[in-house]
């Protein structure tokens, strides 16, 4: 009979530990680490602002397969975590802002704001390695892009 008590204690501890662990795992899996880049696309070899850096070669290559611009320069980059049920606003420039809501299971809703007004809202899954891009024409046949992806671990 004496042995039953410690065994029961171990069982209880195991259940509690399992519960805590599963809670931790669940909360970890619903947090989504994202990266947002504000990018300027142009056919010019150099950016108007010499401080701008070229976008990572792999991303540039992917952009070139689907978009017509030759060169892509990074204006701003933000890494952030979005918790489930807590929308996150991220400022990309003076006029551009995004708000991301995490619905879990890599599903997100992104609202793009221009000069404070919501321009477009998009809901979809963003799997690791995938890019969700918001884009529009800019002056002199250039274009702007907000490139969203899951942050690399």
């Amino acid at each position: 009979m004496k042995k039953i008590v410690p065994f029961g204690g171990i069982s209880l501890a195991t259940v509690v530990l399992f519960f805590v662990y599963s809670c931790l795992v669940r909360s970890g899996s619903t947090d989504l680490a994202l990266q947002a880049q504000l990018v300027w696309g142009t056919n010019n070899d150099k950016p108007d602002d010499p401080k701008l850096k070229e976008v990572d070669a792999k991303v540039t290559e992917r952009l070139r397969t689907a978009l017509k611009w030759k060169n892509y320069f990074e204006v701003n980059r933000q890494n952030f975590i979005v918790r489930a049920g807590t929308p996150k606003k991220v400022k990309m420039s003076d006029h551009c802002e995004i708000e991301v809501e995490n619905f879990g299971n890599s599903s997100i809703e992104v609202k793009l704001y221009g000069k404070g007004k919501m321009v477009v809202k998009k809901t979809q899954k963003i799997k690791p390695g995938e890019l969700l891009i918001f884009a529009g024409d800019d002056k002199n046949d250039t274009a702007w892009f907000v490139v969203l992806s899951q942050s690399e671990k």
Binding site: R62, L63, V119, V120, L131, L132, A135, G136
Partner: peptide, 20 residues
Amino acid sequence: TSSFSFQSEAAGMTVVWVDS
């Protein structure tokens, strides 16, 4: 404004194009 989206499976990307 209006927008349209397209997917490039090869490049693994979705582009939402915003038209003014």
